[in-house]
Structure formats: structure tokens, C-alpha cells
Amino acid sequence: MMVKTIFAGFGGQGVLMMGYSLAHGAMSAGYNVTFLPAYGAEVRGGTANCTVAVSDDEIASPIASEPDNIVVLNTPSLYTFQNRVAFGGALFLNSSIIAVESSRHDVRIFKIPSSEMAEKLGNPRTANTVMMGAFLKMTGLVPPDIYLSSMETVMGSKKKSVIEINHKAFAAGYEFLKMAE
């Protein structure tokens, strides 16, 4: 098994955090993983993206020319990455921000109004965690409990309230797609 996922959005939306926490969770679940951030001239508010590969075998290239999944938090990222997703892959959109439709009809598309959901939960900055809930619900890459403990690890010594709200955000995303089904 080899699953590659690209996470993309504006800088500041927690895009790298999504990839980092997934990679950490997959490592904890016993997989080989690689996490590769796009690097270059640093621009705040510019686009950010990273690629995570999860496999039970050695990972050759950490780059995904044809990712199985993409998780996009803003419209420019949708345009950049939607045509790269492998046939039959999955596309996770933050539908609070992305108003346009994807041009792909050969992939599964999941729209999650994650920014609105995060806002409702009381912290708009947890939109990325909402997305992760939905993402893991549909891909089943990492069991939720392992992921959540990894999320806490990679968030470092954040306040307990921050951890709590992220747990809630994750649960909301996880539940959302269950309801939508």
C-alpha cells in the first residue's frame, strides 16, 4: 500500500501542520512515512503546500506527481492541484472558502465547510483540524485515537484549551462526512 496526499492552502491556514500531524500519526501507526514541504522564497499569505507519503513498504520518492488525495483549503490551490489527483482519487475541499466547482468528475469529491464549522466551534484557526477529521474518516489512513495523540505531540506544549478545541474540531469533521453519507 502506498498513499500520497498533497495538502495545500494559504500560508497561515495550518497546511504544514496537517501534513506533519498526518505523517506523525502514520509513523505512530507503524507505517513508513515521508513529509516534504514546498520550500522557496518565504511569503506570508502566499500559498503553502506539502506532500505526505504513507506506505507499508520503503518510500522511494517523497514527491507526488499523481497524488491519491488532495486536501485544499483555498481556491488557487484547487486550480493548482486538482488535475494532478490520480483517477479514482479523492479531493477534499474547504467549501467555506472555495466557491467554485472542481472540473474533475473521475474522482471522489468531499466538500467540507471547515472554516464555518471551526468558527462555530469558537476557533476559526481549527479549520485545518476539521479537514483532518473528514480526511481520516474517508481514507482511514490512521486510526483517530493515534492521530489525535500525534496531533497533540506535534502541536507541542500548547494550552489545554487549544488541544480541547482541536479535538472537537476533529470530531466535527469526522462526524460531518458520516452524516453526509
Partner: peptide
């Protein structure tokens, strides 16, 4: 190279 430097791995 840049990929080895930037990549995270266990």
C-alpha cells in the same frame, strides 16, 4: 540535496 534536507522522515 535539497530534498534530503527538507524532507521529514522517521
Amino acid at each position: 540535496d535539497g530534498m534530503m534536507g527538507q524532507m521529514m522522515e522517521p
